[in-house]
């Protein structure tokens, strides 16, 4: 869409102003930018060759990350089932689903890394704050997905079961669930993939997993070891995505 007239001029001026303001108030020193090229090359050079001696740490860290993602996802599913029901207009009245949806939007708005930092402060270092953070953060999205899955089903079989004398939970079990099951499976796998990706960096704030080693090696200037861990993370992400694509095809 083309911007026209004064509105277009004002928008352009605003964008230009924002860019100039960012340059003027952030210390972007041109000399540093110019010398950054060789410095980055030097940095990359120190990463090579990656140090393979950290395989044990990689294995330990990846396993912990995987456990955080699995338990965090389980927590999110357990929280999302009741919250998803309470956020669906098919199951409850507007007086219930409106505030619940607002709560879920609020949860989604808090970045995972922030939740993780708060949880580290609350329960201490290790995988537990990571699990809690993942469970909390993922619920904001998963409960919304579940509610949409409930609301997306055909209403006619629900009316038919109501007419046959089935109560709300029985209707949920026998008319709604069979229709929404593939959607729920797909959404849950998708959210698990996101949880696994996001939990890779949780270690940076001390919430457990493989991110802890990246942070440790970078801080102690062991770039060759950090490179090995980074490669492991990239491999894991690619593997997760491949598995997820295969699984999602099964539920299509």
């Amino acid at each position: 869409m083309r911007l026209r007239g004064f509105g277009g001029f004002a928008t352009s001026a605003l964008i230009a102003g924002a860019i100039l303001w960012s340059f003027a108030t952030t210390e972007v020193e041109l000399s540093r930018l110019m010398s950054a090229g060789p410095r980055i090359a030097d940095f990359l050079g120190r990463m090579f060759p990656p140090d393979p001696s950290v395989m044990a740490e990689i294995r330990k860290g990846s396993a912990e990350t995987l456990r955080i993602a699995i338990l965090g996802s389980l927590g999110a599913v357990i929280l999302s089932v009741p919250l998803g029901i309470l956020a669906s207009e098919t199951m409850v009245s507007p007086a219930v689903f409106r505030p619940i949806r607002t709560l879920l939007a609020f949860i989604r708005a808090i970045p995972l890394i922030l939740v993780a930092m708060l949880m580290v402060g609350a329960v201490g270092l290790g995988p537990l704050p990571g699990i809690i953070a993942i469970a909390f953060h993922a619920t904001g999205m998963l409960a919304k997905f579940y509610a949409e899955a409930i609301d997306g089903v055909s209403r006619a079989p629900i009316a038919a079961l109501e007419s046959a004398g089935a109560g709300p939970l029985v209707r949920l079990r026998h008319a709604i669930w069979p229709q929404m099951a593939p959607v729920v499976a797909r959404d849950t796998i998708f959210r698990f993939e996101l949880n696994l990706r996001e939990s890779l960096i949780l270690g940076i704030v001390g919430a457990g997993g493989i991110g802890f080693y990246i942070q440790t090696y970078v801080r102690s200037f062991q770039y060759d070891k950090a490179a090995s861990v980074t490669i492991a993370v990239v491999v894991m992400v690619i593997a997760i995505e491949a598995i997820n694509v295969a699984l999602r095809r099964r539920f299509a």
């Binding site: 055909s154 006619a156 079989p157 009316a159 038919a160 079961l161 109501e162 007419s163 046959a164 004398g165 089935a166 029985v170 026998h174 008319a175 069979p178 229709q179 099951a181 593939p182």
Partner: peptide, 28 residues
């Protein structure tokens, strides 16, 4: 409510369930 049975124009069946499961839904 089971005393009054209803047959819907658009069938109102659970498409992904089996025929027997749908008929058993009438017993719920």
């Amino acid at each position: 409510r089971p005393e009054t049975g209803f047959v819907f124009q658009e069938f109102a069946l659970v498409e992904r369930s089996t025929v027997l499961r749908n008929v058993l839904n009438g017993r719920l």
